[in-house]
Each structure stands twice: as C-alpha cells, then as structure tokens.
C-alpha cells in the first residue's frame, strides 16, 4: 500500500512536470537562472541550498546528539534522566513555523550580532565566512535545522545505546576498562543504529520547509559564503506554488518537487549502503 503510494506520487509528479522537462531537459538541474517573468527556470540554486543546509545541519547536530544520548543513557542518574529525556522529546514536537519565527526574530539577530562577527574575525580567511553579515542566510538556516533534528537523532541514539545488553558493559568493566572505554565500546556497537538516526534526521532536514523559509533569505543564488542568502527546494515550492500563474511555472515547481524526491531517495540509499558496509565489517 505505502509502496504503491510512493509510486503514484512520483508518477504523478513525473507526468505533471512534462512541460518543464520537455522545455529545459537536463539543463533544468544545471541552470541557476530562475525567473518567473521571463519563464526561464533552473533548479541548481535550490538543490545546492537544500543539500548544503541539510548536510551542514547534520554535521552540527551529530556530535551534540551523540553527546546528549551518551549522557542520558550512560552517565546521568535516573532522577535527571527522565525529565531530561522528556524535555528533549518535547523539542521534537514544536511546530516548525515556531522555529521559523524564533529563528527570524531571536536567533538571526543573535547570529548577526555575535556568532557571525566572531566567525569572520577568527576564520574570515576562509571563503565560507566572508562577505556582508545579514544574520539570516545559509548558515543560520543550518543552525535552525541542526536544532530541529537534534532531538530525533539523540532519541534514537539513546534507545540504541539502551538496547546494548548490560552483560557487554559488565564484561568490559570486568576486563578492566574505564568508564570512557566502556562507553566507547557501546558507541562502536551502536554505530549502525546511530547512523540510522542520522539518516532520519537528515531526511527531516531536507524536507523542512517553513523554518528554513523564514531564515534562509530566499534568494536563488550559489555563493561560497555561508553568510549569503540562499534558497531551498521545499521553500521555493511553498513560496511560489500558490501564486504561480503560468503553466510552465507550475510544471517547473513540480519538477523541483520531483528532484527533491530524487535527492531524498539518493541520500537515503547512500546512507543505507553506508550502514550496510559498516555493519558487515563489524
């Protein structure tokens, strides 16, 4: 049933994007010109924005999430563990538009006043941290996404760590391992589960729309600097679909949806492969 749904959805998008596919062909993926007035459409800036913001969010979130999970499952006493887990799970339940508004009114000014000037003064020699400081932009969007996916990854990691039998841990201690060595061993055993959690988090980051739209700056361009405004696939669909009047415009937006589908599919498959190779070695 669900498999059928996936096929129906992708088939439907494939059919509806016919006009745009016929018009632009593969150039659609490689062109960075998006202009509804002249009816020229190219999706590269959106693909770039989605992939960069999501991967950056994953990189920012993964160490924090694993740290939280280790703390909750291995270190924290029971009295701390329960309320803490609860709070983190609550974080996952906050609607994304709330994150978006918080992002634009609270977090972006903070980024502009504190984080970005700091990055520019310390790492300003890198092209990623050059240019005008706006507060909003690709980096801020990545941070918001990182905050949003942390609860998911840490909850899954915690559950995976909990599932490791106590006997293994006791065995490690019996062999004279320190606490950190025992935790390291547990993490090694749990790595396929942790990767699975990361994939789920990444999936959410790729599909996230509202929160990203509020802070990414919504400009279809590809710049090396993370301070510059960018655009994501989900955002452009949300922003333009309701008011798109030309049929080519609509068709192009649907093709962006199809590409988003494709990108999610590819990234998930790669992650599966990674998990497979990791578990086989072990």
């Amino acid at each position: 049933m669900i498999v059928a749904l996936v096929f129906v959805v992708s088939y439907e998008m494939f059919v509806d994007s016919k006009q745009s596919r016929d018009m632009f062909g593969f150039g659609f993926i490689f062109s960075s010109n998006w202009n509804p007035v002249t009816e020229e459409f190219g999706a590269l800036p959106f693909i770039f924005g989605t992939i960069v913001s999501s991967l950056l969010a994953l990189i920012l979130s993964l160490p924090v999430s694993i740290g939280v999970a280790v703390f909750l499952s291995e270190i924290a006493p029971k009295s701390v563990r329960t309320p803490f887990s609860f709070l983190i799970e609550i974080l996952a339940a906050i609607p994304s538009i709330i994150y978006g508004f918080w992002g634009i009114f609270v977090f972006a000014p903070f980024m502009r006043a504190t984080v970005q000037p700091f990055l520019q003064s310390t790492l300003g020699f890198l092209p990623f941290f050059q240019g005008v400081i706006y507060g909003t932009g690709l980096l801020t969007a990545s941070f918001i996404l990182a905050i949003m996916i942390t609860p998911i990854i840490s909850a899954i990691t915690r559950d995976v760590l909990k599932a490791i039998p106590v006997s293994q841990r006791e065995a490690a201690y019996a062999l004279g391992a320190t606490r950190w060595e025992a935790i390291k061993m547990a993490l090694l055993n749990a790595k396929s589960g942790i990767l699975g959690g990361a994939v789920l988090g990444l999936g959410r980051a790729i599909g996230e729309t509202m929160a990203v739209t509020m802070v990414i700056g919504n400009k279809a361009q590809i710049k090396a600097s993370l301070f510059e405004p960018a655009y994501s696939m989900a955002s452009v669909i949300a922003n333009e679909f309701a008011e798109a009047s030309g049929s080519l415009h609509i068709s192009s937006l649907i093709e962006v949806g199809l590409i988003l589908f494709g990108v999610t599919f590819i990234i998930n498959s790669l992650a599966r492969l990674l998990i497979y190779s990791v578990t086989r070695k072990a």
Binding site: W34, P36, V37, G217, K219, A220, N239, H249
Partner: peptide
Amino acid sequence: DVRFPVGQG
C-alpha cells in the same frame, strides 16, 4: 513573482 536583482526575501 519577480526576480529581484539584489537583496533577500
């Protein structure tokens, strides 16, 4: 929907 040459949205 127009494509603004400068700024952010």
